[in-house]
Design a protein around this nucleic acid. Sequence first.
DNA 1: TTGCTCCTCACGTCACGTGAGGTGGC
DNA 2: TTGCTCCTCACGTCACGTGAGGTGGC
Lengths: 144, 144
Amino acid sequence: VSENELRIGEVARRAGTTPRTIRYYEEIGLLPPADGRASGAHRTYAESAVEQLTGLLQLKDLLGLSLEELKDLQAAEAARAVRRREWDEGVDDPVRRREILQASLGDIERKLDLVRRRQESIGQLEDDLSRQARRIKKLLADAD
Amino acid sequence: VSENELRIGEVARRAGTTPRTIRYYEEIGLLPPADGRASGAHRTYAESAVEQLTGLLQLKDLLGLSLEELKDLQAAEAARAVRRREWDEGVDDPVRRREILQASLGDIERKLDLVRRRQESIGQLEDDLSRQARRIKKLLADAD
DNA sequence: TTGCTCCTCACGTCACGTGAGGTGGC
DNA sequence: TTGCTCCTCACGTCACGTGAGGTGGC
């Protein structure tokens, strides 16, 4: 019941989805259950939940990943979050520091790979459509 | 039973999908029923069916369109096919020729619009991920 | 004749949408 | 107290997947 806690409808609205989706993601374990919540009580979320949900929806809608695939990716992120906490608490061993950073970088570049493959496919589709458009424009120009 | 008629499995394989999908698309009227076919007999398709199906799947998977939205787009294409036939039979009136070409161009540019909006969204996602990657790479470099 | 692919139900699944009936916080 | 949003079932829907049991062409 803190100051800037959000309710489920507000989180959904900001992320461009519905409360039902949030409850479903919680049900299948894709989103963490909203903090300590008595059964039947309202769910409350921190601001950061909006970004987390937005990220999931982007990967799902823009890259066409299934919720199962998102769970796999997110398992890696969870591991990264653990390392992150370790990091924040101060890691003195420079070798360990490198390991943590490398792993984080690996997670991100895996996503970038997926993004770029998508961009290529869509670029191919764009080329096909552009070619069709150019052919017709030429016919129109010739008709002048 | 002609020379290069394809069976449903072959059409599906070439388009990267399954026979069930083709039957379902036929059932909802997204694909035309395979020519004159006795009830229970095998479906046969022309080569062109592969490209037609591939086009539908690309719009669906890459742009995230629903089958209902594909039907709308395809209704416009059907109208274009009619005009196309009129065109092939020779249109003498130059005003009418222009109309036909303009309409075809409109259909294609509508799709190009959808493609470009997608590219922008994915480009945004790529930028976000690239920024994250760069931040970590800088930390790695500083550690040296 | 033997495989293989095909056929038509028809039920299952994934990712939610949509009420039904009820409780809780500004 | 009145709205509004929230809650939990639970059934519906979209786009197929997946057998069940049977028929048809190289």
